[in-house]
């Protein structure tokens, strides 16, 4: 009975489920990507330490920014995303007349951004301060040090946590059904409503979520393993400088 019903639902409603998967993926992937960018910005600025060379204006803006960032993170980590979605969607509807999909991506992005900011901040703080000192001692500016040395290492440190946000977003984008975007949860609810096979429909829905998150985890693990391998054996040793492979990304001309 159960299996038969599941097969029937799949046969009849596969296209709406697929649409649900597509919307879920679009919202969670874009949300994670924009969230990461936002997190890099907010977390990076929050972790930045002004040294004695900073002027009073820089100090003032840093204080101001820290205050604003604090409020942002507190609010978006401290309220449910479902509530954020309805509130922000309706609050801005009359101002910018946006579609629910855009609103959903916007909400999940700034929500993720709040978490990412903390992830990036702790990633930056985990980078050995000696790295910054060495960069500064060579004459590199604050920005050069940040983008060339600290952030790449911070992102590397924080990669598992960043990837985790993607997995969380695939699942938690389900609460965005509250503003009626056609993501997986919304579609499943409509299907269940018209077939009355609630158990089967939600079982299918759960299975699809599990497949999506498993694929995401698998890919993230692979990326992480690759990064580790690259770090360990950047290139086999020793080798000659005339061998272009030996220099990694830079080529050396033969004399």
């Amino acid at each position: 009975m159960f299996v038969q019903n599941c097969a029937e639902i799949l046969g009849k409603y596969w296209s709406s489920l697929l649409l649900g998967v597509r919307t879920t993926l679009v919202v969670s992937l874009l949300g994670t990507a924009f969230g990461l960018i936002l997190g890099l910005l907010v977390g990076g600025l929050r972790a930045a330490r002004l040294d004695y060379t900073a002027g009073p204006a820089a100090r003032f803006f840093k204080k101001l920014f820290d205050g604003i960032a604090n409020i942002y993170i507190t609010i978006f980590r401290g309220t449910p995303m479902m509530v954020q979605a309805v509130f922000i969607y309706y609050a801005l509807l009359n101002v910018i007349h946006w579609s629910t999909l855009v609103a959903a991506i916007f909400v999940i992005s700034i929500n993720t951004g709040a978490y990412m900011a903390e992830i990036i901040r702790s990633g930056i703080q985990a980078v050995d301060p000696g790295q910054t000192e060495a960069a500064r001692s060579l004459g590199m500016s604050n920005a050069q040090t940040m983008f060339g040395v600290v952030l790449p290492q911070a992102i590397r440190n924080a990669f598992p946590a960043i990837g985790n946000e993607l997995v969380v977003n695939i699942k938690d984008s389900s609460v965005l059904m509250i503003i009626s975007i056609t993501e997986l949860m919304f579609q499943a609810k409509s299907i269940a409503g018209s077939t009355f096979h609630f158990t089967e429909t939600y079982f299918l829905e759960a299975s699809i979520y599990l497949i999506l998150t498993s694929i995401a985890s698998f890919i993230l693990n692979r990326i992480e393993r690759n990064m580790n391998r690259q770090e360990r054996t950047n290139v086999s040793l020793p080798m000659s400088d005339t061998d272009p492979r030996s220099i990694g990304y830079v080529r050396v001309r033969k004399k």
Partner: peptide, 21 residues
């Protein structure tokens, strides 16, 4: 920064950039 570029420094803990070869 321009001044520091003229003065090289080596540290006890080496502090090589670990994200670069």
């Amino acid at each position: 920064n321009a001044y520091r570029a003229k003065v090289g420094m080596c540290f006890q803990q080496f502090n090589l950039f670990s994200n670069m070869n």
